[in-house]
Simulated scan of single mutants.
Amino acid sequence: MSCPALLTAPPGVIPLFKILGNTVAFADTLYLFTANDFLTFAIPTTLFATFGSLSGPVITTNPSPSLVSILSRIPIALLVVWANLLIFNISNQRSPLVVEDKVNKPHRPLPSGRVTSDGARRILLVTIPLVLLLGWALNCWQETLMLFMMTWMYNAMGGSDDNWVLRNLFVALGYGMYSSAALRVMIGVGEEVTSKGLQWVGGVMVVMFGTQHICDIKDVEGDKVMGRRSAPIVLGNDLVRWSVAPPVVVGSMVCSYFFDLGISSYVIALAIGGLVAFRTLAYRGLRSDKMTWKVWTLWICWLSRCR
């Protein structure tokens, strides 16, 4: 069916419609590469940076942060995280992972036919130097380089396939680098992250290391196709759930204690963490596991606050 706007538009305007349409379609394709990890990585790490920068001298060298200035930098911090996430996701989803995504995530650009593997390679050739330039301009090039290195080790070197503990370690380190990059952007030029701030980043990384394999429970079928030794496949369904639930509860208490945030922080963290632990053990099946993963993401977002 023809678009009425195109039928009535002057001839010179039609190419503009086509250009805009192609641009929107390409932007949508880029987002689809990152859609599954946007909620898990981009949002929590940006919230971490927002709360951290607002805390002022708690974890940064800024004694009196400006709320307006910090809020105005949220889009830039989110762009930095998303751009680095895009590099990882395109690298991760290229062949032979198309086979896995046909089972677990058929909506992604490669299994859905939006982009070919060679097309994804060409996108990487353009975006990698652009993202590195963005990191240099915003003073987070160190994290960008670390993320590039871990992307290569995780994907091209198969670092995520042979050992689920190593897989968790890569994910935790990546989460820390995304958080640190966003925090550098959010605190503004001339300010630094203190040693307490680095400890906070490290604490969240430890929590991720001990609990993030909850994400793999919902992806078991695709991981079996790839021969990947993820935690649910190695440990079994019951043991992997028990390996997640206790660390979630412990992490809820330890992270609240770290900054002595008061009883309300303990109550909320334990309430959300307790729900994650309960759902992990009590509710099973693909639909339930996907919902539990979303609640876990909410829990991570709450733990990312430091005031």
Results as ranks from 00 to 15, higher is better:
residue 155 N to R: 02
residue 33 F to T: 01
residue 255 C to L: 15
residue 283 Y to C: 13
residue 278 F to I: 10
residue 158 G to P: 06
residue 105 K to L: 13
residue 236 G to R: 12
residue 280 T to S: 09
residue 4 P to C: 07
residue 111 P to C: 06
residue 228 R to C: 10
residue 189 V to S: 11
residue 25 A to G: 06
residue 199 Q to E: 13
residue 110 L to M: 14
residue 11 P to N: 07
residue 31 Y to Q: 08
residue 194 T to N: 02
residue 148 F to D: 06
residue 196 K to T: 12
residue 140 C to I: 04
residue 112 S to L: 03
residue 288 S to I: 02
residue 306 C to V: 15
residue 49 A to P: 01
residue 279 R to Y: 07
residue 106 P to I: 03
residue 48 F to S: 04
residue 84 N to P: 05
residue 247 P to S: 07
residue 137 A to I: 09
residue 159 G to Q: 09
residue 95 S to W: 00
residue 247 P to G: 03
residue 210 G to M: 05
residue 102 K to W: 00
residue 155 N to M: 03
residue 73 R to A: 15
residue 242 W to R: 14
residue 200 W to A: 11
residue 174 G to F: 01
residue 6 L to F: 10
residue 80 V to Y: 09
residue 81 V to A: 13
residue 176 G to E: 00
residue 182 A to P: 04
residue 22 N to K: 07
residue 50 T to P: 01
residue 6 L to P: 09
residue 219 D to M: 04
residue 297 T to K: 06
residue 37 D to H: 08
residue 29 T to Q: 08
residue 202 G to D: 02
residue 180 S to M: 03
residue 214 I to S: 08
residue 253 M to C: 15
residue 19 I to F: 03
residue 61 T to I: 11
residue 191 E to S: 03
residue 203 G to W: 14
residue 177 M to S: 02
residue 296 W to A: 08
residue 295 V to H: 15
residue 307 R to T: 09
residue 129 P to L: 14
residue 197 G to R: 10
residue 47 L to K: 01
residue 13 V to Q: 13
residue 103 V to N: 06
residue 255 C to S: 11
residue 25 A to R: 12
residue 101 D to W: 05
residue 297 T to W: 01
residue 182 A to F: 02
residue 193 V to F: 10
residue 152 W to P: 05
residue 145 L to V: 15
residue 213 H to Q: 06
residue 28 D to C: 04
residue 143 E to M: 07
residue 15 P to C: 06
residue 305 R to G: 10
residue 99 V to Y: 09
residue 112 S to C: 11
residue 191 E to G: 02
residue 192 E to T: 15
residue 161 D to Q: 07
residue 193 V to N: 00
residue 83 A to M: 14
residue 108 R to A: 11
residue 5 A to S: 13
residue 285 G to R: 11
residue 36 N to L: 00
residue 65 P to N: 13
residue 57 P to K: 10
residue 41 F to E: 01
residue 60 T to K: 09
residue 49 A to E: 01
residue 146 M to W: 09
residue 13 V to M: 12
residue 196 K to M: 10
residue 270 L to G: 13
residue 276 V to E: 08
residue 194 T to Q: 01
residue 293 W to N: 04
residue 134 L to P: 09
residue 178 Y to Q: 06
residue 210 G to W: 03
residue 270 L to K: 08
residue 106 P to F: 03
residue 118 D to W: 14
residue 275 L to V: 15
residue 229 R to T: 03
residue 233 I to A: 05
residue 106 P to N: 12
residue 276 V to M: 08
residue 73 R to L: 14
residue 33 F to K: 02
residue 172 A to Q: 02
